[in-house]
Design a binder for these strands. Sequence first.
DNA 1: ATAAAGGCCACCC
DNA 2: GGGTGGCCTTTAT
Length: 167
Amino acid sequence: MRQLPPSSNPSYGFTNSPFGECCIAFSNDGICALTFPESRESAYADLDHRFPETDFKQNDDKAARLAKQVFDKGEKPTLNPIGTDFQLSVWHAMQRIPAGQTTTYALIAEAIGRPKAVRAVGTAIGANPIAFLIPCHRVIRTDGGLGGFRWGLDCKKQMLEWEKRKF
DNA sequence: ATAAAGGCCACCC
DNA sequence: GGGTGGCCTTTAT
């Protein structure tokens, strides 16, 4: 489960975005990763850690087209997140949050029928492989605090403001 | 099999 | 504001 079949043509590319350079990984089955790494090295490390067995080909053109689709036109390409059942249900629930709005870790836990697994929901959200498209930046704490964010709270704040402005 | 570590929350002080 | 105990999943021993 921890790899993409070679026949699906696994690829990745770097391109820019409203939030700095991003790395997009994808195959015929959809996007499997979107990160905002500090460096290209850390992007490779991240990919390799998530898909140890998969051999990705570089394709920056396709990555650029995908980025344009997402950040300019506001479209949502097909996603192909890989994770445990619990993680998939959390990631799925996040995708139902409308752009520009927020919800809380506790409400997500409620939504997937596991009201007591709040802590685990936080962990699963932190493991979100497809930043922005699976909108983990829209999830904040019950007490109104921002919570955490993989690439820094500034980035989380920026994304929220950006889409508030755009939608 | 077990331990430790999390993007949390409610409750207390 | 801060500290504590309980909660549940994942990952690393």
